[in-house]
Design a protein around this nucleic acid. Structure first.
Lengths: 154, 154
DNA sequence: GTTGAAAGAAAAGTAGG
DNA sequence: CCTACTTTTCTTTCAAC
């Protein structure tokens, strides 16, 4: 599990932009032949640099046009409660991201739903059905400026 | 650009989990033969349901272990300033996400960097070099509970 | 690291039901 | 929608340098 050289980084940059890039294309872009490119990609997968390959779907097309961040505070910080809350989050498909935060509140979660009505339903019927939550504050997204999955390596 | 049926949804769910799933595998999972599966995938790409295929890289392995959310307020909300700020964000590779928010502040951005020292450098030398920013508040992530790119369709 | 070759798989297209 | 077949391309492995 050695460090990445410039060629590895170029490969990772390319695959982060388009994972369908073929070994052949990669090879001409990074300037080495297909065999070592193939071996490098396999190594990057094996060593865990590449976690997985996914298709990114347009949120508007699948009716998830409303994004809301929720700042959640728990009633207590007992390990039991933290665990219960985290498991609750893992089970909610509307929750795309969930972070344990330092500061004035405990968790920041990113929720993506169809519209405001669905969001209300989510908060009332799903989010707050676990009794470990004390307080929720919703921050509404009006517009998306940037949304990246790529870490540019250099 | 018609609506999705159950088969389309199954295909999208699968490709969101693993975009390397072959037409053959998809075909046995959704119960139709390879040719129509192939055509459905092409249609989903063409109609924009699938935006792109990407490799997801492990943030720890590429030295982006610190995640910080910044609540940014602008000095004024003149169109010119909004535009300048947004372009500034697009040019910063540490900024993974940027949202225009309703509420007490103007933008929420997700920044991923190596460590606290790098974050300080980012704030001082990069984020706040545009004169349209009035105020920045940093919210630090202690732990990641969930991080999803998949919209489960049903 | 490189090249080239080769077997196997998958993608992409075609034809007929 | 199905099966079946074809061509092309890519993946994967291997031998040799």
């Amino acid at each position: 599990m050695s460090k990445l050289d410039q060629i590895d980084k170029k490969i990772l940059n390319r695959l982060q932009e388009d994972s369908r890039t073929t070994t052949k294309e990669l090879s001409s872009e990074v300037g080495i032949s297909t065999t070592p490119v193939y071996e490098r990609v396999k190594r990057l997968e094996k060593d865990g640099y590449i976690k997985k390959y996914v298709a990114l779907v347009d949120k508007d097309k699948v009716e998830r046009e409303l994004t809301v961040f929720c700042q959640v505070s728990l009633k207590s910080h007992l390990k039991k409660n933290i665990q219960q809350f985290q498991e609750h989050m893992l089970g909610l498909p509307e929750v795309m991201e969930c972070y344990h935060m330092a500061g004035n509140f405990d968790y920041l979660i990113k929720v993506m739903v169809r519209n405001m009505k669905e969001y209300q339903k989510f908060v009332v019927e799903k989010l707050t059905t676990t009794d470990v939550i004390d307080h929720v504050q919703s921050l509404f997204v009006m517009g998306e400026v940037k949304q990246e999955t790529k870490f540019p390596l250099k």
